[in-house]
């Protein structure tokens, strides 16, 4: 995790209150409750959905220093910081909705489908439903800010994709991949929310592949492999962002006045082969059709959950332009690509 640091723009809920730090140390339950209620008055409350996912956990750990964090997930979050209020509920259930209505979070961080891989069944429609429910709740409780974590891969790595796509490029990634199609639907749903609820400052972050010591996503798993299959004859440029930089971006997005869509990238980009060289992995170049056939056969035998559709990432680049986040939010990644690759 990152070193402790107060955000450059401290978010405030009402002009009459000031943010106040809290003392750590063993206290009685009553004192904790009292302190918590006192802190409630001063610290903005943020709701994190999918709080027990890799990214959700990292985010909760970063946000609980400056915010009162309420996390919602169907999974347990055993190693959460003590003051993170975790609820094991499904967002679509009445209990979760009652909870949100009661706690009235001013800020909401929604972790999109691309950052919450779960084993087993496809969660497509359920995620769309959960997002729709959340948007309704955000409107109902009058939350000030909604930050949704989408993904830059939604632009779609393909032979025709232009290099350094800006935020207004079309999201074309979902033509073959069902999970990406769902993620695009979520992204679009939130885009229309910009207009539906102008009172809420809505932010969509589209980060490139996120890596870091706490990440268990496909890219991190791929980069951690000692022997890595690559596509023979292809060496696309890749962009990666460290988890600490991503949480920085989320904190920046929570600041007053920020709204809109932002690509979040690391400082540089590099060919896949050189990224793997920094990791010290041995590459095994495999002809594309062979690797695709192997993956689909292994998938049929339930030996892997990786679909052969993912191979497009090893074939084509999907470079995005992160200039807007820099100029509007003042976001700049602190972890260099080599540094980020060594810290996994």
């Amino acid at each position: 995790m990152a070193t402790k640091k107060t955000p450059t723009t401290p978010p405030t809920t009402t002009p009459t209150t000031t943010p106040r730090g809290r003392k750590a140390g063993p206290t009685t339950a009553a004192a904790t409750a009292e302190r918590r209620s006192a802190a409630r008055l001063t610290r903005p409350r943020v709701l994190v959905t999918s709080g027990a996912s890799d990214l959700g956990r990292v985010l909760c750990r970063r946000l609980h220093r400056d915010f009162d964090v309420i996390s919602i997930d169907t999974r347990a979050f055993p190693d959460r910081p003590k003051d993170v209020d975790h609820h094991e509920v499904d967002l679509r259930r009445k209990a979760a909705q009652a909870l949100i209505k009661k706690s009235k979070p001013e800020l909401v961080v929604h972790i999109g489908p691309m950052h919450d891989e779960r084993p087993g069944r496809s969660r497509g429609s359920s995620l769309l439903e959960a997002t729709a429910t959340l948007l309704k709740l955000v409107e109902e409780v009058g939350a000030k800010k909604l930050v949704v974590l989408s993904a830059a891969t939604l632009y779609g790595p393909s032979a025709v994709s232009a290099a350094f796509m800006s935020e207004d490029a079309a999201l074309l990634g979902g033509q073959r991949h069902p999970r990406m199609a769902d993620a695009i639907a979520v992204d679009m749903m939130v885009q229309s929310f910009f207009w539906k609820s102008p009172g809420t400052e809505t932010v969509i972050l589209r980060p490139v592949h996120i890596i870091g010591p706490h990440m268990q996503n496909l890219v991190s798993r791929y980069l951690r492999m000692p022997r890595v299959p690559t596509l023979l004859g292809f060496d696309p440029m890749v962009q990666l962002v460290h988890e600490d930089d991503l949480t920085d971006a989320v904190v920046k997005a929570l600041a007053d006045g920020v709204r809109g869509v932002f690509n979040i990238t690391g400082p540089t980009q590099a060919p896949l082969s050189r990224v793997l060289a920094v990791r010290g992995s041995h590459t095994i170049p495999v002809p594309g059709p062979l690797l695709a056939a192997a993956l689909s056969r292994m998938g049929a035998l339930r030996l892997t959950r990786v679909s052969d559709d993912e191979l497009v990432h090893l074939k084509y680049a999907c470079l995005v332009d992160g200039k807007r986040a820099q100029t509007v939010m003042g976001f700049a990644a602190r972890r260099g690509l080599q540094d980020a690759l060594r810290d996994m």
């Binding site: 440029m237 540089t268 060919p271 050189r274 680049a317 690509l337 080599q338």
Partner: peptide
């Protein structure tokens, strides 16, 4: 060129 010896386009 960046630290990987490539320009932004590779």
């Amino acid at each position: 060129l960046n630290e990987f010896g490539v320009d932004p386009f590779g």
